[in-house]
């Protein structure tokens, strides 16, 4: 029996159903999703093609030469030339960057985040640091040539290159990545919850005790991740090194050179090796050795990025 009440209920049900149910897939949103997917696929395809091209060019070198390609030094003979000199140079540069940019950058970040009063001067410094991070790397090369090279020479570390050596290169690269170290460290410090600071102050800790015991340990994973990524950047940069006189041709360090001689003598870096080989007139250098060197460089960079991701994952989600 259909009473008025049940008829009303049915009408309500129908009205609600109509209001909350849509008629089918919305065409506009579907098209947009497909477009985004296509763009994503396209960028992956380009990247993959690039990698495949390089890998296929590089493959014969690795197949024929094996580890000797990595372990050999520079040579004019494509059959024996290797990237070892470049790897060593890049590692030394990265090491100098790490010991200079990391402490200075973290200290600057601590000052900016924890100590500096929130006023116009601090905001100006903050903005300047951010702008510096965006300055083209070649400008840092000019800075290195104008300041760091003479300084290195001036303090007696000029050696046979007159200051155009791996020390000046390291300092220049440190200056290049310093703003990025400061920014990422400041972000990491800022992301430490204030409740941790309150807790420290609440039990009677001084500001330095709070920072050293709680803020820095909590921010360290973020700081380390950022620093590793900046090292990868320093590892891959070429332009500033070219400006401050990296060796782009063949050189052979004296067999009995002291460590100081090696540090102050001519040097090269992995990306510079790629650069100079690809400009060689001998086909072997440009066509097979340069792609192989690129593969080595990419491997190192991927490893560094992977390390950074591992660091972040290991420490994420602690609050």
């Amino acid at each position: 029996m259909t009473t008025a009440a049940t008829r009303r209920e049915e009408a309500t049900r129908a009205a609600v159903e109509k209001a909350i149910t849509h008629g089918g897939p919305k065409l506009g949103s579907l098209a947009f999703r497909l477009l985004l997917l296509a763009l994503l696929v396209m960028s992956f395809v380009i990247l993959a093609a690039l990698l495949a091209d390089i890998a296929s060019s590089a493959w014969p070198t690795f197949a024929e030469r094996g580890p000797s390609f990595v372990m050999n030094g520079l040579s004019l003979n494509p059959a024996t030339a290797g990237v070892w000199t470049g790897i060593v140079g890049s590692l030394i540069i990265a090491f100098i960057v790490a010991i200079l940019a990391f402490p200075v950058g973290v200290a600057a970040a601590i000052y900016l985040e924890e100590y500096a009063p929130d006023n116009r001067r601090t905001r100006f410094v903050d903005t300047t640091v951010r702008n510096l991070a965006g300055v083209p790397s070649i400008v840092y090369g000019l800075l290195g040539l104008a300041i760091f090279v003479p300084v290195v020479r001036g303090i007696g570390l000029g050696g046979s290159t007159g200051g155009k050596n791996v020390i000046a290169a390291g300092i220049t690269m440190a200056a290049l990545v310093l703003p990025i170290v400061i920014i990422t460290s400041a972000e990491a410090i800022r992301s430490v919850p204030n409740s941790i600071r309150d807790a420290g102050y609440g039990v009677g800790a001084t500001q330095w005790e709070v920072i050293s015991s709680h803020v820095l340990p909590s921010a360290l994973p973020g700081i380390l991740t950022g620093t590793v990524l900046t090292l990868a950047r320093a590892f891959g940069e070429t332009a500033p090194l070219l400006v401050i006189g990296v060796a782009t041709g063949f050189f052979s360090p004296a067999g009995d050179a002291t460590l100081l001689d090696q540090l102050t003598g001519p040097y090269t870096a992995l990306p510079v090796v790629v650069f100079s080989w690809s400009r060689q007139t001998q086909a072997a250098f440009a066509d097979t050795l340069a792609p192989a060197a690129i593969v080595v460089l990419l491997t190192v960079l991927f490893a560094l990025n992977g390390f950074a991701i591992w660091l972040r994952n290991r420490t994420e989600g602690r609050w």
Partner: peptide, 19 residues
């Protein structure tokens, strides 16, 4: 203030143990 806080301790709204 550091000495004050050693004598007058504080417990906060959200539990905030150190990590």
């Amino acid at each position: 203030p550091v000495e004050v806080r050693r004598r007058i301790g504080m417990v906060f709204q959200k539990p905030n143990p150190f990590p």
